[in-house]
């Protein structure tokens, strides 16, 4: 890099700033919270207007599968938090192993979600299907929101898994070390957000009877 004035800046290309990077991730997570917040707002309003219908429709969801998926996400949150502990201690092998476990758990979550969605689609509850069209207005709204919110969440699960896969690759390449682990931390923050959203989706969709 050349400067016409010949001035050399004290910062010569080393632009790593762990704190700013982490703050950037948190600010992004706040926008994510408000994105899902908007959907929770819509859910609240429609629920107030269609209390009985939402209640009836929510009985169609499988509490057992929802609970298993909650446990899967909570465990995966712990494994990625432990992966950060491991890399902070300089234990790259354990860190990578825990990241692999986290990705594996994200796949388990998606497979269970896939079976849940398939069951609902087989009943014809997917927006646009015949059974869905003939449901009372409030119940079809519930299923619309169910599919919209869980699939937006699932999209975040997939993005999170890809993010973690990138961290595994970078860690194996030696770019992530005990002194430089912001990438792992940020992947962890993102993954915990995915968990946080599910912590609210699960009771609102499955449990509130």
């Amino acid at each position: 890099m050349e400067h016409a004035t010949g001035l050399v800046l004290p910062n010569s290309g080393h632009n790593r700033d762990a704190e700013a990077s982490k703050m950037g991730m948190w600010l992004f997570l706040f926008t994510e919270l408000l994105l899902f917040g908007g959907l929770f707002l819509v859910y609240m309003v429609y629920r107030m207007l269609n209390a009985e219908a939402f209640l009836l429709a929510s009985f169609e969801l499988n509490i057992a599968l929802g609970t298993i998926n909650t446990v899967v996400l909570l465990v995966s949150s712990m494994t990625i938090a432990m992966a950060i502990t491991a890399i902070q201690k300089g234990d790259r092998k354990t860190s990578v192993l825990l990241l692999y476990v986290t990705v594996a758990l994200s796949l388990v979550f998606m497979v269970i979600k896939f079976f849940e969605w398939s069951a609902k689609i087989n009943y014809g509850y997917f927006p646009g299907m015949e059974v869905y069209q003939n449901l009372p207005a409030g119940e079809s709204l519930f299923f619309f929101l169910y599919f919209f919110m869980t699939s937006l969440h699932a999209l975040h699960v997939i993005i999170g898994a890809v993010f973690i896969a990138v961290v595994i690759y970078r860690t194996n390449k030696g770019f992530v070390t005990a002194e430089k682990y912001t990438l792992t931390e940020n992947a962890g923050l993102y993954w915990h957000l995915v968990d946080l959203i599910w912590i609210f989706l699960f009771p609102l969709l499955y449990l509130i009877h």
Partner: peptide, 21 residues
């Protein structure tokens, strides 16, 4: 049960944010 579900979810969210995050 609505109130308890939301209360418990909020506590869980805070635990995740405070310790895991």
């Amino acid at each position: 049960s609505v109130a308890t579900a939301l209360l418990i979810a909020t506590i869980k969210a805070l635990v995740v944010a405070y310790y895991f995050m």
